Amino acid sequence: MIRTATPADVPVLHTLIRELAEYEKALSEARATPDQLHEALFGPHPAAYAHIAQDDTTGTPVGFALWFLNFSTWRGVHGIYLEDLYVRPEARGGGHGKALLTELARICVQRGYGRLEWSVLNWNTPSIAFYESLGARPQEEWTVYRLTDEALTNLATQP
């Protein structure tokens, strides 16, 4: 079962995000606090949205998708950028990941959004195979660039 996250889900979302960071070998980089998540998802100007995957029998949260809107200047419409998709290891293979992506695809179609896109680590071959089985294709002509921490501050303070 997939449902929209509520403010009561912030603690479990925080836990799942940290589990994802550990899986991606980057736990030290996961610095978001529950308060920051609450503000981003449920504050006066939400910057992101989340869906929870629950075990069909117990109702226990087993995964999540956290996403935000982007915009294509070429298509002239919004799209969804999936920031994180995670399903706990013990629940993988149960259809939760596909159900989360299906829900986001439905939102795109219902709202007239032109894209659903995300990034995946090159070493994460199980996820790559899963995404490709759904019809997703890598955008090999693009390379992601990122400014953070000192480099971001240095650029921001340039005259």
Rank of each mutant, 00 (worst) to 15 (best):
K98H: 09
P46R: 10
G79S: 03
P34C: 03
D9W: 01
R92W: 00
T73W: 15
E83Y: 02
T33L: 02
P46F: 03
A21N: 07
G97H: 02
Y49D: 00
V12M: 08
H14Q: 03
V62Q: 09
R106M: 05
A32P: 06
H51K: 14
T58H: 06
A26M: 15
A40T: 13
P34L: 02
T57E: 08
A99P: 10
G76C: 07
E103M: 13
T6E: 14
V10F: 03
D56F: 12
Q36V: 14
A105L: 08
N70R: 02
E19R: 12
C108Y: 10
P46N: 13
T58L: 01
P89T: 06
H51N: 11
N70V: 01
C108I: 15
A5I: 10
L100E: 00
F42E: 06
A91M: 11
H51A: 08
L37N: 01
P61S: 12
G79P: 06
L69N: 09
L101I: 15
Q54I: 02
L41T: 06
L16A: 00
G97W: 00
L69H: 10
T4K: 11
R3W: 06
H14K: 04
Q36S: 15
H14L: 02
E19T: 03
A8T: 13
N70I: 03
A105T: 15
F64D: 03
E83M: 02
T15S: 10
H14F: 11
H38W: 03
D9E: 10
T57N: 14
R92G: 05
Y49K: 15
I2Q: 12
L82T: 07
I107V: 11
R75I: 14
T57I: 02
D35P: 00
P11I: 04
W74H: 13
G94H: 06
L27H: 15
G43E: 12
G59L: 07
C108Q: 11
G95F: 02
H78F: 03
L37K: 01
V10T: 01
I107T: 13
P7C: 00
P44W: 01
D55L: 05
H14A: 09
A105H: 12
E39K: 14
Y86K: 12
E29T: 04
L104W: 05
E90P: 02
A30M: 14
P61G: 10
A40C: 09
G79H: 00
E83K: 08
T57H: 07
A53T: 04
P11Q: 04
Y23D: 04
V77L: 06
L85G: 01
G79T: 00
R75Q: 11
S72G: 06
L82P: 07
E24L: 10
A65E: 02
S28P: 07
D35Q: 14
A40F: 04
V109M: 13
W67Q: 03
T33H: 06
V109C: 08
L20S: 07
A47M: 15
Y81H: 09
A8E: 08
G63D: 02
G79V: 04
T57P: 05
Y49H: 15
A65C: 06
E90R: 15
A40G: 09
E24R: 12
P61K: 08
A26V: 01
L101K: 07
V62E: 07
H78K: 10
V77W: 03
L37M: 12
L100N: 04
G76Q: 09
S72H: 12
T57Q: 12
T60E: 12
H14R: 05
Q36I: 14
R106N: 11
N70P: 04
H14I: 05
F42H: 13
